[in-house]
């Protein structure tokens, strides 16, 4: 088979396989004719009607806000704590038992506690919950990134008597940034999940809340619409993140390509 034919077939497959799967889904729902499994077309219509834009402000915006704020706080804290821990062996030794515990605990176990401690089910509680668990991927990746810094870079900085705070700002931080971004990517996906969990558990607004309400009222269409929306949201946020990463870490790709390892 010539390369050209192969490539054409491949592109053909890339298009037809997803299309066939969508078709199969549609056919299944038509054949089953069950309100529990509405047709994809109906779901899309519901997504459009409900979330864009009738209840956009009521649900989509709060959810996005919580994700955004929780993620941002997690990144700032994760990096701010991770850099000193990456540089200090004693710091790591002291912090490790705590980190190992909090990253291993299933987040939902802390949902009731977050409500008790913060006396509310409003934004503060949600954002705190999201931020708390999203710190860990960023934190751990920051630590690894800092520890893996090429020693010669540090020697160079020291030989030129670059002061410590400049070293951290201009050398340690950029050098660890590729690894930090890897952690941020995981954190972002985690933020979406934490948002859904916290809203589904107890909330008065948000996409997760829609899930909860539709379950309580046995309404399948809004439920499916919410599921699809959450999936799309996760996909779009990830795509957006990759775009930003590509721009910020352009130097890293070039360097990796040019440097034999």
């Amino acid at each position: 088979m010539s390369p050209r034919v192969y490539r054409t077939l491949k592109i053909g497959a890339e298009i037809t396989v997803p299309f066939l799967m969508l078709l199969a889904w549609w056919l299944y729902t038509v054949q089953r004719d069950d309100p529990k499994f509405p047709r994809p077309t109906t779901i899309v219509a519901e997504v459009r009607n409900r979330f864009f834009f009738a209840e956009f402000d009521l649900h989509v915006v709060p959810s996005l806000e919580r994700i955004g704020l929780g993620f941002a706080i997690a990144v700032v804290l994760g990096v701010a704590i991770g850099i000193p821990l990456g540089l200090s062996r004693i710091g790591r030794s002291a912090a490790m038992p705590h980190i190992e515990y909090w990253r291993a605990i299933p987040p939902p176990a802390l949902l009731p506690i977050s409500i008790i401690l913060l006396h509310s089910i409003g934004n503060t509680q949600k954002v705190s919950f999201i931020a708390f668990f999203c710190i860990f991927p960023v934190l751990l990746n920051t630590i690894d990134g800092v520890r893996a810094i090429e020693p010669t870079l540090i020697d160079t900085a020291r030989s030129f008597r670059i002061p410590a705070h400049e070293r951290i700002r201009r050398i340690v931080f950029p050098a660890a940034l590729p690894q930090i971004f890897a952690g941020m990517r995981t954190s972002l996906a985690l933020a979406v999940i934490m948002m859904v969990l916290s809203e589904y558990f107890a909330s008065t607004s948000g996409v997760g809340y829609v899930l909860l309400i539709s379950k309580n009222t046995f309404q399948f269409l809004p439920m499916w619409a919410a599921i699809v929306l959450i999936g799309v949201l996760g996909y779009l946020l990830n795509a957006l993140f990759l775009l930003v990463e590509r721009h910020v870490l352009a130097w890293h790709r070039g360097w990796r390509a040019a440097t034999p390892r």
């Binding site: 020697d155 030989s159 030129f160 950029p174």
Partner: peptide
């Protein structure tokens, strides 16, 4: 008053 030049330039120049 001293400056250093290392052998591994790819590890002493900042890639970013």
């Amino acid at each position: 008053q001293m400056a250093l030049v290392f052998q591994e330039y790819s590890r002493s120049l900042m890639p970013w």
